[in-house]
Write a protein that binds this DNA or RNA. Structure first.
Lengths: 340, 340
DNA sequence: CTGAAAGCGCTAACAG
DNA sequence: CTGTTAGCGCTTTCAG
């Protein structure tokens, strides 16, 4: 049977209080006693029960991570970083796939609460803030990552999507493209809206406009992206460049282009977003807007852990900057730009 | 403050024992009483504490999942399935990235034990069985996935790697290739050894042999794979087809081939393993040996949960069969086969 | 059908 | 410096 604090106390000939003190390094314990207790603990293979200590008000040293889908490369990389950092700080992370469903999200939060996780990182991009409100109301330490903080007082780490949109657009314009297409994932993502805002801003400055029919939405899988891309690409005057809101979608676009017999990047330039593994795998390698995923992960984790430990009281919003990574899926325009 | 069972009992005018019974649907409780208690619970927003009930010997409804790296597409897909199934069955999963390190593995297991997880799924491919022995000794429900079960009595779900090796080889031979190259990840993976055994078996049957210099190893990232592939491809009589032990490595091989000016698949055929997202993304789409990842995930989870719940007593070893998925990275041999 | 009471393993005053 | 004791929130006999 697993040894308890009582067994240790008995073996060491001291009280459980003493043992507890040496475990937690609290109170004043005699050198000899401490060493003796330590020895017994080792001998018995004793390990303090996190469950029992959590019941007396201490932490469970566990945090919950909600993402739409860990199988999505962006989130799996993010999850990896968060787990890494959490581990360094002594926290386990339980993973939850919400599929962007408000119901699933709420359900997970309820369970995490029952399990007394010390805090929660929300990485899902839902507009609906019910869950978040609930979390803040019950004073669960919470931090958002890669999603907008809807004017609530909550720790947040995200990137400047507006800038991301601008960077992508500027790159395309510099290459001579004026007729641009856009592929969004949909889901009312405020990130995507921000990026589009960045796009429009740059376009306007250059006396260009984005045509609504060149904006296509509702693509989650690569197959869907391909289908949707077909729509834009088979129009009368198709765009000469497409900006996809993530690398997976960009790959879908490239598949579609290839199927239509278009050469990449001579006939059609494609730029993605995120700079996940997919961007370097794809052929041609994908030009994309890079998110500092590693930093996003470590910084949210740090924020959350600090809050859990009560090491800081004011909430922060950290905005990291994306950057353009030029690979081979974009090039100068070849065809004569079509007049609109 | 969060309501406890006492608050509910008081409000409902019953004892905590009664409340406990309605929560767990145990004992015999009067219809009226039950409904009243239920109503109060809802009214108070009461949620039973998993921590407290775990202390009294019940489950924590949490399982630990050890994988080398969730950011690796194969494992992220697997993790997704395991979490899905776990969630269906009422279990949370805490994720642990071992980087295939025996130390990290041991450390995680220790922590999971302290946290009283109900069971552990091992998805890391280490040869060293110390951790596993420890787990079995302390009678923690354990299940292995995608790794060999070293003649120990433990629940296991894996694929027939030997068959996988055969399938890949047969495919290549049918296309006329006789000079084959192989890329392994290394790490003493028994899976890879099994696959190679399958390869050799088929080769021998066909009076062919695999040349040691065409086996390259120690590649974990795509970049490393590319470098290693360069070695094989720049030999005097390079193979006409390469079998990579996973889709990531296969992509590395393709990168190398392309850099050397070889056409895919006319000049060099490439076949991968796993059939992850990467296989469909790559260009040309990758021919690969598909692992039934979804099934692997749900089946280990089921096995583990059953063991946790004590629903079965005998251990099982389930072997799933891989299958060949032909895409466009392999084709019939074009060059005259070089005589060796 | 319902309640009293013991206890799960540990922490935190408070004494000594 | 060390021990006593009262819980933490819940489950589980065992009485009634």
């Amino acid at each position: 049977m697993k040894p308890t604090i009582y067994h240790v106390a008995e073996q060491a000939g001291v009280s459980i209080a003493t043992v507890s003190k040496v475990i937690n390094n609290t109170g004043r314990i005699g050198r000899e006693t401490r060493e003796n207790v330590l020895a017994i603990m080792k001998e018995l293979g004793y390990e303090p029960s996190v469950v029992a200590s959590a019941l007396t008000g201490k932490h469970t040293n566990t945090i919950g991570l909600l993402v739409p889908d860990v199988a999505n490369p962006y989130f799996s990389e993010l999850a990896r970083r968060i787990e890494d950092r959490g581990h360094e700080k002594g926290f386990s992370v339980v993973i939850c796939n919400t599929d962007n469903g408000i119901e699933k999200e709420a359900e997970y939060v309820k369970w995490l609460h029952r399990k007394q996780v010390d805090g929660i990182i929300l990485g899902t991009g839902i507009q609906d803030n019910r869950t978040l409100h609930e979390l803040l109301k019950q004073e669960t330490p919470t931090a958002l990552v890669a999603r907008d903080s809807p004017s609530l007082q909550v720790d947040t780490v995200r990137i400047d999507d507006y800038l991301g949109g601008r960077l992508a657009t500027e790159h395309l314009l510099e290459l001579g493209h004026t007729n641009l297409g856009f592929m969004l994932g949909g889901l009312n993502s405020s990130s995507e809206e921000e990026r589009l805002r960045g796009v429009r801003s740059v376009m306007t400055t250059n006396n260009l406009s984005v045509c609504e029919k060149d904006i296509v939405t509702d693509a989650y899988t690569i197959e869907e992206a391909k289908q949707q891309a077909m729509k834009i690409l088979t129009q009368a005057q198709p765009p000469t460049a497409i900006f996809a809101m993530n690398d997976l979608l960009a790959n879908g676009v490239m598949k579609a282009a290839r199927e239509l017999g278009l050469r990449l990047p001579q006939d059609i330039s494609v730029i993605g977003f995120d700079n996940t593994l997919l961007a370097s795998i794809s052929e041609p390698p994908l030009t994309t807007i890079a998110q500092p995923i590693a930093d996003l992960g470590t910084q949210v984790t740090d924020l959350l852990v600090q809050e859990i430990l009560g090491e800081k009281t004011v909430k922060q919003r950290i905005v990291l900057l994306p950057s353009l990574v030029v690979r081979e899926s974009t090039t100068t325009i070849a065809r004569t730009p079509v007049q609109k």
